[in-house]
């Protein structure tokens, strides 16, 4: 038993962190409203060349051959660096296509030739996901997207974005992403994978939780740095308990979610009965941690935190968006309560 990353896993983390900091510095996002195209096709292909999009896919499916743990570690770094959720669309889409036996499509997804947008059921609308889909959906990052990934507890599907009736791009709470609505009436999908074969919805839940952890950790780190520098009343504000205790609360949330992410990536991969229990617990905790930490970080940064000159607000907004993907807090808490006790 050793819950910490191995040396090899730590290498994945370090490589990802330094690549992202060099290639996609967060300050590029400042003052660039609606940069839905932050990841151009060339960028996506460059990321694909690192093998990231197939990191958790077995080698027989032309993946890198790592498991969910490595995939999750990568997504923590993507979340920390505010990389767009469509990368999750590519990873899950590639897996879906591969497991459905559509190897050509899988290859172009893993190579980054195709952009996959994520869609969720519109609140209050009855949606049906199967060999065809119906209902009203919210689509994140529709701009230049080729395919759409939809998933629920029953299964997951890929379909061409063009086959849906989409509205004009709407303004998204997260100005670095776009959002639009789409209505589908029995639109046939390209491929559909029932959850019995591979639970893509819960895998997405775990990977979004990893991105939320990245946000929780990034906002803690920024707050601690700021609290060590900013002086008032002749002292750095981090010496005041009011600020110090906020930071301690943020740190506890990071520790709790990181522990749960590691634990869940193992139990879920092993298809242990605890996998679902852990995934639902994880998502609820990750949403709370990311939102508490990002929101508190604004308060710690004071008036400057409220401006667009700093990047904290981007984390606040992204935490809200990620919270809606693959089931929100209430969804997962309700589901968790229905699960039997685990050891």
């Amino acid at each position: 038993m050793d819950l910490l990353p191995t040396q090899e896993q730590q290498q994945i983390i370090d490589t990802a962190a330094s690549f992202l900091a060099n290639e996609f510095p967060i300050n590029q996002l400042l003052g660039a409203p609606n940069s839905d195209t932050r990841i151009s096709r060339e960028h996506l292909q460059k990321i694909a060349q690192l093998g990231w999009l197939g990191i958790g896919l077995p080698e027989e499916l032309q993946g890198v051959g790592y498991g969910l743990s490595e995939e999750a570690l990568l997504f923590v770094e993507l979340g920390r660096n505010l990389m767009p959720p469509s990368l999750l669309g590519s990873v899950l889409g590639g897996r879906l296509a591969g497991l459905c036996g559509e190897h050509e499509r899988m290859r172009s997804l893993l190579d980054g030739d195709i952009k996959v947008a994520l869609a969720i059921s519109h609140p209050g609308s009855e949606t049906k996901i199967g060999k065809s889909i119906s209902g009203e959906f919210l689509i994140y990052e529709p701009h230049e997207a080729d395919l759409l990934l939809v998933a629920d507890e029953g299964g997951a599907a890929l379909l061409p974005l063009k086959s849906m009736q989409t509205t004009e791009d709407d303004r998204c709470i997260d100005e670095t992403l776009g959002v639009s609505s789409a209505i589908a009436k029995n639109v046939p999908v390209l491929c559909y994978l029932p959850a019995e074969n591979d639970h893509l919805f819960l895998r997405g839940t775990i990977l979004v939780s990893a991105m939320l952890l990245g946000i929780a950790e990034a906002t803690l780190a920024r707050s601690v740095d700021y609290a060590k520098q900013r002086e008032q009343f002749g002292k750095v504000i981090g010496s005041f308990q009011a600020i110090k205790h906020y930071c301690a609360e943020m740190a506890v949330r990071c520790e709790s979610v990181r522990s749960m992410l590691y634990h869940t990536s193992i139990t879920f991969q092993a298809q242990s009965p605890a996998g679902v229990f852990d995934a639902c617990s994880l998502k609820a905790l990750a949403i709370e941690a990311a939102q508490y930490n990002a929101n508190t970080a604004i308060q710690i940064h004071g008036g400057m935190g409220f401006t667009r000159e700093m990047d904290i607000h981007l984390f606040v907004k992204r935490a809200q968006v990620l919270g809606t993907l693959f089931g929100g807090e209430r969804y997962h808490l309700r589901r968790l309560l229905c699960e039997p006790v685990v050891d």
Binding site: E255, S256, S259, F277, C280
Partner: peptide, 15 residues
């Protein structure tokens, strides 16, 4: 959920 993460935190701490 929080109680579950208590177990995970303990295992991480021991590691």
């Amino acid at each position: 959920a929080e109680t579950r993460s208590l177990l995970a935190m303990t295992l991480l701490g021991i590691s």
